[in-house]
């Protein structure tokens, strides 16, 4: 536990030096082929662990990102396999708040962001869970139209402070 606390503190120090509010720390472009979802979620899984998220939180964040990308593939591009999707990642939820901000952009058809919602969970049927999962896992979820073509999804998740270890209490 002590080691994790120190890792988290170390990351915060690094963050103060290197985080840019405009330029993402990680940018990837992938094709809209479901085969590449595994690589994208492994990237998110590894990165969130390094940023200090707990293992279960990292798994849920990777799931939310997977669902966001799958929605672009399924609904945005109608399962066309060769269309571009961009994912940009910042190592903070918002300026000064440790965590994660992920932006997913595409060139798919534009829709009214207000019409994007998950299905009623009591109406059990196959499909329609992706948006619900994204909203359940992430702290904030904003869909918007890009300037000329496509949609943009902005998701944030703040890092929950880790409990202070007993030894630190004793020393403090």
């Amino acid at each position: 536990m002590d080691e994790l606390v120190h890792q988290s503190e170390g990351r915060a120090v690094r963050e103060g030096r290197s985080v840019s509010e405009t330029k993402p720390a990680v940018e990837i472009r992938l094709l809209s082929d479901p085969m590449y979802l595994a690589g994208a979620r492994e990237l998110v899984l590894g990165l969130t662990r390094r940023l200090g998220f707990r293992q279960d939180e990292s798994g849920r964040i990777a799931l939310a990102v997977d669902e966001a990308l799958a929605n672009v593939i399924n609904h945005g591009y109608g399962r066309q396999l060769d269309k571009p999707i961009w994912m940009s990642i910042w190592p903070n939820a918002k300026p000064g708040v440790p965590g994660l901000r992920i932006v997913v952009e595409d060139e798919a058809k534009q829709i009214d962001p207000d019409t994007i919602c998950g299905r009623d969970l009591d109406d059990i049927k196959p499909g329609g869970l992706g948006v619900h999962i994204i909203k359940e896992v992430m702290d904030s979820v904003v869909y918007e139209r890009r300037e000329k073509v496509g949609m943009r999804l902005i998701m944030t998740k703040a890092l929950t402070p880790k409990p202070t270890s007993a030894r630190e209490h004793a020393n403090g």
């Binding site: 979802l37 979620r41 799931l63 669902e67 799958a70 049927k125 196959p126 499909g127 869970l129 992706g130």
Partner: peptide, 16 residues
């Protein structure tokens, strides 16, 4: 080790 909502949807269909 991992399942997304398409896997869950497949299992809901299996239940039906």
């Amino acid at each position: 080790s991992y399942m997304d909502s398409s896997g869950v949807a497949t299992l809901v269909e299996a239940m039906q």
